[in-house]
């Protein structure tokens, strides 16, 4: 059986919102180390994954490895019934075909329970090589969202150039072109509001062209984290990582656009 109690429903709500438009259904893999998932979009261009470590739940119990097939649209609808500050208890009894979600209000006066039908999904796992990236950019996630949104008005793809100076996002379209350069900075704590600066750690400069449609989908994870890590090497898929507090992360891998 699985029983996992997450103190804040908002975390699960945000995770589901940030993958549901990329992936329609996927297996949630549960083990004694936590709950994870990995799935590609239909066109094989983007891979979404997340991990919530067992210590992020209190308590967490998973007796054996489970693969629970879930339709994101259904899960998203059910999670809309949970308050942001509700506690969520995820419960699965062995050999059942449903997953139970219990929402408890903070004062424990309202307890709602929903069951979601599980699917039998034959998912294809890709093994992602454990690689060192040539360049690691860390920047504000809200700034990343703004840049992707702004450049979408110009073109369908963005070129990300990372150098020691900083990171530059450029787009070109039929009506013109645009670019945003973020210079490398320290983390500036703006009156305690924790404004995240931009940092670039690199072995060599990287330049990659990526589809803005996908990047705009990835920005749905921005509410989970103040910062986003963009890990890049020339000519291979980019990894975007949004940390979920210190209990896990959401990662997106995106295949680049390559010159003919």
């Amino acid at each position: 059986m699985l029983e996992a109690r997450l103190p804040q429903a908002s975390i699960l709500k945000k995770i589901v919102e940030s993958v549901k438009d990329l992936v329609s259904q996927a297996n949630f893999d549960c083990s004694d180390s936590g709950i994870s998932f990995q799935a590609m979009d239909e066109s094989n261009i983007a891979l979404s994954s997340f991990l919530l470590r067992a210590d992020g739940f209190d308590p967490y119990r998973c007796d054996r490895n489970l693969s629970l097939g879930i339709k994101f649209a259904s899960l998203s609808k059910i999670l809309k019934c949970a308050g942001n500050d509700d506690v969520v208890i995820i419960r699965y009894m062995d050999d059942a075909d449903i997953l139970s979600l219990v929402f408890e209000s903070p004062n424990n006066e309202r307890i709602s329970e929903f069951d979601i039908k599980l699917l039998d999904i034959d998912s294809e796992y890709l093994s992602i090589p454990d690689q060192e990236f040539e360049c690691k950019v860390k920047m504000s996630s809200s700034e990343f969202s703004r840049i992707c949104r702004d450049l979408m008005t110009i073109g369908a793809s963005v070129v990300i150039d990372a150098t020691k100076e900083g990171v530059k996002f450029s787009a070109t379209g039929d009506d013109g072109s645009g670019s945003v350069l973020l210079k490398q900075s320290g983390s500036i704590d703006n009156e305690g509001r924790g404004v995240v600066g931009t940092s670039v750690e690199m072995v060599e400069p990287v330049s990659l062209e990526l589809s803005l449609k996908y990047l705009n989908n990835f920005t749905k994870a921005a509410p989970l984290s103040d910062s986003v890590a963009i890990n890049m090497s020339n000519g291979i898929p980019v990894m975007f990582q949004f940390d979920v507090g210190d209990i896990g992360y959401i990662r997106y891998f995106l295949a680049p656009q390559i010159k003919d």
């Binding site: 590609m40 983007a46 291979i236 898929p237 010159k259």
Partner: peptide, 14 residues
């Protein structure tokens, strides 16, 4: 012109 690559050309299917 650029062409969109797919992930399966980079990541192996076990």
């Amino acid at each position: 012109m650029s062409k969109q690559a797919t992930l399966s050309s980079f990541f192996a299917k076990p």
